[in-house]
C-alpha cells in the first residue's frame, strides 16, 4: 500500500523549481498590485516600500509607466540576517518586480538557488531560503490565480 502511494506521489511531483520565479497575471496593473500586496501580508510579511523605477519612462518613448519594485520582510528575519549573515544584507528586504504588459501584468522574483552553494553547511539558513522561496512562489501564484 505504502509503496503504491509513494510511486503515485513521485510521479505527480512537479518539475524542479526554476531560478527565476515569473508569472503572468491577466489582471490590470493596479488590480494585480492590490492582490500582490494583499497576498504578501497574508503570508505574514510587511510591505516596507513600493519603489517606482519608471519615472520618466513615458517621456523616453515607452508605452508604459507602470513598473514598480515591491520590498517586503519581517522585522525579526531582517534583524536575524543583519546580525548573523552580514553578507546577505544586500539581499534584504526581499523584493518582487511588477510591470504592465498591455492589459496583463508580469511579476518576477529571484530564487535563492544562486546563493545556496555558498552556504552548503548552514542548514538553518538553507531552511530559511526554502521558506522564502516557498512564500515567494505562493505569493506569485496567488496573483496569477486571482481574477
Amino acid at each position: 500500500m505504502r509503496r503504491w502511494l509513494l510511486i503515485a506521489l513521485l510521479l505527480s511531483l512537479p518539475a524542479r523549481a526554476a531560478d527565476l520565479f515569473m508569472v503572468r497575471s491577466e489582471l490590470s496593473f493596479p488590480e494585480a498590485m492590490a492582490v500582490l500586496q494583499e497576498s504578501i501580508r497574508a503570508r505574514g510579511y510587511q510591505v516596507s516600500r513600493v519603489q517606482r523605477v519608471d519615472i520618466g519612462l513615458t517621456k523616453s518613448g515607452y508605452k508604459t509607466d507602470k513598473y514598480r519594485v515591491v520590498f517586503f520582510g519581517k522585522k525579526d528575519e531582517i534583524e536575524h540576517i543583519a546580525d548573523k549573515h552580514i553578507d546577505l544584507i544586500p539581499y534584504v528586504p526581499i523584493k518582487i518586480a511588477i510591470f504592465a504588459e498591455q492589459d496583463n501584468t508580469i511579476l518576477l522574483s529571484s530564487s535563492f538557488s544562486h546563493l545556496r552553494p555558498y552556504y552548503r553547511d548552514d542548514d538553518e539558513l538553507l531552511a530559511e531560503f526554502d521558506r522564502w522561496e516557498k512564500d515567494l512562489q505562493a505569493i506569485l501564484k496567488a496573483v496569477q490565480d486571482a481574477d
Binding site: L20, M22, Q51, V53, I55, G56, L57, S60, Y62, Y67, R68, V69, A82, I86, I89, P90, K95, A97, I98, F99, I106, L108, S109, S110
Partner: peptide, 29 residues
C-alpha cells in the same frame, strides 16, 4: 539607492526583467 534615466532606459531595452537589479543599491553597515 541611486539611478539615472539613461541607465534605466538602456537596461530596460536589454531585458524588461532588470527591475530586479534596480534601483542601484549600496548598503553601509
Amino acid at each position: 539607492y541611486f539611478c539615472s534615466f539613461s541607465f534605466l532606459n538602456e537596461a530596460l531595452a536589454i531585458d524588461p526583467r532588470v527591475g530586479l537589479f534596480l534601483p542601484c543599491r549600496v548598503t553601509v553597515v
